[in-house]
Computed example of a mutant assay.
Amino acid sequence: MTTIEPFLRSDRALRRGKRLAIVHGGTYYHLQTMKDPAVLAYQPDFLYLPELEDGDLDEYDTVIVGERLHPELVAKNAAQFRSVPERGATIVALGESGAHNWLPGVKWEQRPTNFWWWLTKEDPMIRTRSHDHESWQYLTSKSVIWHHHGIYNTDADVVPLLVSEEPDAEGNSHDAGMMLYEDTVTTPGRIIATTLDPMYHHGSNFMPGATRFLYALLRWVDNT
């Protein structure tokens, strides 16, 4: 089991009893993100997915599952990922890691990715929602509106935070699905799921909005 502890946990962190784990695949963008002082400030334990064993996530209050992980390894650990919110803790599912295969009652639909809408002046049809939600104390439109790779849908009464607004068969705009949501109803804990891939873009030094989102996400889960 590979764990990176960059420095001793602060007295504040120890008093709060909060522990953060980030599950990664050892790819360059994960490794670059893991070296960022702004990430290290939250004193996470970095857990290497190929070496993850049963029970390794049991002690953490918050687990972030990084994006673009090996699908077979994600499937192998699906039950362990599900167990995090089932015991009352928080799990965050990032990007394209097949989270719909282990998150309860979630369906995924792929969408084409437009990397350059801000240059071509197209409307990305990405909309923020639930503006009275606590997450918007940390998130901003610039931190969430860049691009995405698909949408989630679920019948559960989750809180949509970022959606894709698309025309229906009659040409009327409607919320087709979510790119970011919080679920506190299907388990005793909390699920935050997004189709955004901030670690990939942050670690690749590509897309400033992704860096803003990553930092804001860490502040949000750390404070709540």
Rank of each mutant, 00 (worst) to 15 (best):
A78Y: 08
R87Q: 09
E51L: 13
V65A: 04
I91D: 05
D56G: 06
P85I: 07
D58G: 05
L69W: 08
D61T: 13
R68I: 03
D61S: 13
E67I: 01
K107Y: 07
A79Q: 13
L52K: 12
R87Y: 12
P104N: 00
I64R: 01
G105L: 08
D56R: 10
L73F: 03
A75V: 04
E51R: 13
E59R: 14
V74G: 00
E86H: 10
A89D: 14
A93Q: 03
D58Q: 15
P71R: 03
Q80A: 15
E96L: 10
D61Q: 15
P71L: 09
P44W: 00
D45Q: 11
W108Q: 03
P104V: 01
G95A: 08
E53G: 07
V74T: 05
V65H: 02
P50S: 06
N101L: 14
Y48V: 03
H70R: 09
A89N: 15
V92A: 05
Y60R: 10
A75N: 07
V74F: 08
S83R: 13
G105V: 02
G105D: 14
Q80H: 14
L69Y: 07
V65W: 03
S83Q: 13
D58E: 15
V106Q: 06
L103T: 03
L103K: 03
N77A: 10
E53S: 12
D58M: 08
E51Q: 15
T90K: 11
S83P: 11
I64G: 07
N101C: 04
R87E: 11
A75K: 14
A93I: 04
L49P: 08
W108S: 04
R82T: 11
T90V: 13
P104Q: 00
E72C: 01
L49T: 02
V63L: 05
F46Q: 11
L73Y: 06
H100Y: 15
I91F: 06
G95T: 05
K107M: 11
E59A: 15
G88A: 10
G88H: 06
F81T: 00
I91L: 13
P85D: 12
R87L: 11
V74N: 01
G88P: 15
H70W: 06
G55T: 12
E53F: 08
A89R: 15
A78G: 06
D56M: 14
L49I: 07
P71D: 05
V63H: 03
E86S: 13
F46C: 04
Q80N: 14
R87W: 08
V92L: 01
D58C: 07
L52T: 06
L52S: 05
E67K: 04
E72W: 04
T90G: 05
T62Q: 04
G66N: 07
D61Y: 02
G105P: 04
A75G: 06
A78W: 11
E67V: 00
P50F: 05
A79H: 09
T90N: 10
A89P: 09
L69P: 01
E96A: 09
E67T: 06
A99R: 03
Y48S: 08
A75E: 13
I64W: 03
D56T: 10
P85F: 11
G55P: 07
I64T: 06
H70D: 15
R87I: 10
W108M: 10
E51C: 02
A89K: 15
R82Q: 14
W102Y: 14
T62W: 05
I91R: 03
N77K: 08
D58T: 14
E96G: 06
Y60C: 09
E67W: 02
N77I: 00
